[in-house]
């Protein structure tokens, strides 16, 4: 048979495509359940990493040191999930853990839904917010835990899709960066100011953290992400704070 005839080429390409597609699809189907569960645990671990200091699993034991079972157990027992819209109302129908932040980011702000995780530990309540923004190469995201005064940050965890290892990737790899956010405040005299990531080092001990040298764009991305991401939660935060009543009445 002539190997260069159109019929042979067509036959070869179609056969190859069918075999490859069939093989990959079957392997994907066979591994999907486990892979999805791994992803679920990975995301829940990231949420819990924001309250690393309050897991109650022992000194210096963070979410990354827990086993998969422990992550699921803590999440099921101590975390209450709420889905919010950007007007600060609770929304039914979607579980907070199922919200795809990457898709939400593309929507118009008024149409987005936001996940809120309430974490209870020894009588204290923490509000864990999810934020998403852009780094240098691709998207970055994080979870911010607020203490019950709705201003002091209890902890934060960040992750990224493709920041440079050793530079932008430090937002995830270097625990010092996320630790710096602890005990910072996002409200000054009742007004939302967010936390500034400052290049060259923090100047205000309450509202600023150190940037990362050599990764200015990623650090600025974190700064912007916090500012715009937490702002989406403001209607809800003001509501539970109670102090935002006047501004709500004016609207």
């Amino acid at each position: 048979m002539d190997k260069n005839s159109t019929n042979y080429v067509l036959f070869f390409v179609v056969t190859m495509t069918v075999i490859v597609a069939f093989a990959l699809t079957s392997i994907r189907q066979a591994t999907k359940a486990t892979a999805d569960q791994n992803e679920d645990i990975f995301n829940k671990r990231a949420v819990l990493a924001a309250v690393n200091d309050y897991l109650g699993m022992g000194e210096n034991v963070g979410a990354n040191d827990l086993t998969d079972e422990q992550v699921l157990e803590i999440f099921n027992e101590k975390v209450e999930q709420t889905t919010l819209n950007t007007q600060g109302q609770e929304v039914d129908g979607v579980m907070a853990e199922d919200i795809d932040m990457a898709k939400e980011k593309k929507k118009d702000e008024s149409e987005r839904v936001l996940p809120l995780f309430k974490y209870a530990y020894e009588g204290q309540e923490f509000y864990i917010l999810s934020v998403r923004g852009n780094g240098l190469w691709d998207e970055i995201w994080g979870n911010i835990a607020l203490k019950s005064d709705i201003s002091t940050i209890a902890g934060a965890s960040f992750d990224h899709k493709g920041e440079t290892p050793g530079l932008g990737a430090e937002i995830k790899d270097n625990p010092t960066f996320s630790d710096n956010f602890k005990d910072k405040e996002i409200f000054r005299d009742g007004e939302f100011v967010s936390v500034k990531v400052r290049k060259g080092g923090a100047q205000d001990p309450t509202y600023e953290v150190d940037g990362i040298s050599g990764a200015t764009v990623t650090a600025d991305g974190v700064d912007k992400m916090l500012r715009s991401g937490i702002a989406l939660y403001l209607p809800y935060l003001n509501k539970i704070k109670g102090s935002g009543m006047e501004s709500m009445l004016q609207e």
Partner: peptide, 12 residues
């Protein structure tokens, strides 16, 4: 793709 799926399955 196989490498990717194996990693997803064994070490997410």
């Amino acid at each position: 793709t196989l490498v990717e799926m194996a990693l997803k399955y064994f070490n997410y």
